[in-house]
Design a protein around this nucleic acid. Sequence first.
DNA 1: CGTCGGGCCTCCT
DNA 2: GAGGAGGCCCGAC
Length: 199
Amino acid sequence: MRSKSAAEFEHWFRKDVGRQLVRVEPPRDLAAKIEDQLEGKRRMRFDLRGLTPFSQAVLSKTLEIPRGQVRPYGWIAREIGHPAAVRAVGTALANNPIPYFIPCHRVIRTDGVIGNYGGGGPEAKAQILSLEGVQLKRLQTLARSGLRYEGVRSTKIFCFPTCYHGRRVREGNFVFFHDEAEARAAGYRPCKDCRPAVA
DNA sequence: CGTCGGGCCTCCT
DNA sequence: GAGGAGGCCCGAC
């Protein structure tokens, strides 16, 4: 079930876009497009040139996070070449001109906490992630134990817990790690898709 | 657990 | 312009 109707999203979307330096195209059939976007069938195109290069990089990178998955703020920072600018990433996402469409809700804290969210608070963020299929319970359980990565015994590859490579793995075939060093020490290498660490 | 300071990009004096 | 405050954070105590 869905927390908001497409009509509600459309209203919010128009309001939000209206005060930002961002163009979205095309504006026609917006309700249908929002519907598709929510279903994961479509990826709209955005013109983000009104934003700073840093913000553009953050938002573009955020677009790469697949539906049903999450990444930490620090991952964005590292991926765009500003590994120390973690907090600035949060600032850039807080100013995300197109929430939902640029899925800043898929960026959560390294320690597993859901993190803050402008469009309705952490509760809304959690709700959206659930709709997208993220196993929040499992994520939080791991996080509470300080386990950030999951490795697959057969492949000796470690991933972020929501990486799709683990989608068919039986829970018993996972091995969990606190950090990169621990994973490597166990003979695991980082996944090339979710990139939990630099190869 | 909590708190602290580092770090860094933006925006606003 | 320079300077400071603050923000969807992070790691270490």
